[in-house]
Nucleic acid binder design. Structure first.
Lengths: 114, 114
DNA sequence: TGTTATACTTAGAACTTCTATGTATATTGA
DNA sequence: TCAATATACATAGAAGTTCTAAGTATAACA
């Protein structure tokens, strides 16, 4: 994955995926494209990396899946966020803000993620 | 570790430690206290968690260590950042800003870590 | 009709992290 | 004075996670 550290990508993947799904239902392949687009190409998940994350989130009941056949005739597994997932997302947002505050203090930058 | 997710703590620990050392030389025990203080108690590294991280950074030549006997008579292993560590810190800061930008877009918040 | 893009799955290799345990000494306070 | 606590560091390996690599399948396109 390009230049971004694996740790940061790992730490951000769940909040990012939950955020995407909190706006619209989506499916694996589209989520990968969306993240690539949002990051301007800096984060490029391999499919084999993202799908297991989706399965994990599903197992934890943060999201749920159903199969749908697209107009194209191709079948896709759509995911939607569950209420447990929304709560988790809120928690993740708080965490992110906390860490950002600490880092901002150290770097002498005013935090804005508040 | 309290409520903060392990992933986030993991992703932030190296930039945080390098930042602390970029201001002053310090030693393990003090770094733990400093992080606890900065995070208002939210991040409380176990010593067995932090020391291996310091060893790893030393091995990668981002920091270097030397023993010193404090006024108290107690011996401490002080760490100071090396130029390679400063470069790494700069890279980590950029990464952090990149991820923050993505997250800000998703959360409709204006990023300030820029 | 061959190649590329779309779409998903999963075993297990590879890696990381933290727990648990150990050592040692200074300080505090009962 | 001596027990408890705080300071200070080290590390084996348990426990966990993540990603690579390989596989299946079909639509679109040239």
């Amino acid at each position: 994955m390009e230049n971004l550290s694996k740790e940061l990508i790992g730490a951000s993947s769940i909040p990012i995926i939950l955020s995407i799904l909190s706006k619209n239902e989506s499916y694996g392949y589209e989520i990968i494209q969306r993240i690539k687009e949002l990051s301007e190409g800096k984060i490029n998940y391999a499919d084999g990396t993202l799908y297991p994350v989706l399965h994990k989130l599903e197992k934890k009941e943060l999201i749920e899946a159903y199969w749908k056949v697209a107009e194209t005739g191709r079948r896709r597994k759509y995911y939607r966020i569950k209420s447990k997932g929304k709560k988790e997302l809120a928690r993740e947002q708080e965490n992110w803000i906390t860490i950002n505050t600490i880092i901002s203090k150290l770097w002498n930058i005013e935090p804005r993620l508040t």
